[in-house]
Design a protein around this nucleic acid. Structure first.
Ligand SMILES: [Zn+2]
Ligand SMILES: [Zn+2]
Ligand SMILES: [Zn+2]
Ligand SMILES: [Zn+2]
Lengths: 132, 132
DNA sequence: TCTACGATGTAATGCTATAACGTTATGATA
DNA sequence: TATCATAACGTTATAGCATTACATCGTAGA
């Protein structure tokens, strides 16, 4: 047996790369940073990313076609995660809001829509960059 | 002069294609449907789409890399639009929620984040498909 | 041992989007 | 009219993102 949270070598490499990064990385950027570790093909990265997304250790930013390490691993009580993305410095803030989640749940209930997952991405300028 | 809402030939072709479609279309699918009308290159479609997005006549679904005609033209009072996307039948519902918008505005105010635009996409199964 | 399963490696391909260039249509202005 | 500026257009090439297909390997269970 063994814990179901163990990561393989490739998964660990990709997660470490994301964790050390200042901002979101594309799969191909991750690949480039891991060529020294023996990775050669996009699929090696995409497969690792798939598993990390499954486990909630990383997130995909749809509006950027890029990925980030989860900022709050093991702490996704709310089923909904929002991202604020600064278009100047690239910084990504991850947060959740119970009222928003409840409000969207209500909408889904009323409409009979069965929610699988929700993407919420706010693009703009962070305080640091806006005040500079 | 003339109204600033007039569309060019390509813009009209693309918007008509989106309007007649049952669900979201990728730029390349739009292109394929318009080859009979003389369109030959992706850029012709992308340029038309850019203008349609600017004018609020179409929307981009980030999680699908696809586009839809706006369901409520001239009626985007709320700065935030949400989409519910059925992964079975492809149907897209467009709606907005003042409470959600206000809640996200509050978050941005507190954090000093200047919002440019927000993407909200709910993936799941519509009532029709869920009950079938 | 045999088998099933998951992870891996590799090559090839497909899908999405933009850069860079030149041309054409239009409308304002001298 | 001649000139100029602007916006849309057309075309080719290229960049960037993601998946299909197939072979291999290692391990756990029957
Ligand atoms: Zn997270
Ligand atoms: Zn910033
Ligand atoms: Zn709309
Ligand atoms: Zn459906």
């Amino acid at each position: 047996m063994s814990g179901q949270t163990d990561l393989t070598r490739n998964q660990t490499l990709v997660l470490d790369t994301l964790t050390k990064a200042e901002g979101p990385l594309s799969a191909y950027t991750i690949l480039d940073q891991l060529r020294g570790d023996g990775l050669r093909a996009p699929l090696q990265v995409y497969r690792a990313l798939d598993k990390l997304l499954e486990k909630g250790l990383a997130h995909r930013l749809e509006s950027l076609n890029a990925f980030v390490a989860c900022a709050h691993p093991h702490c996704h009580k709310s089923g909904l995660i929002a991202f604020a993305i600064c278009e100047t410095c690239g910084l990504v803030r991850e947060f959740s809001d119970e009222v928003v989640r409840a409000r969207l749940d209500d909408w889904a209930d009323r409409e009979g829509f069965v929610t699988a997952r929700t993407t919420m991405e706010i693009r703009g300028t962070c305080q640091q960059c806006a005040s500079g």
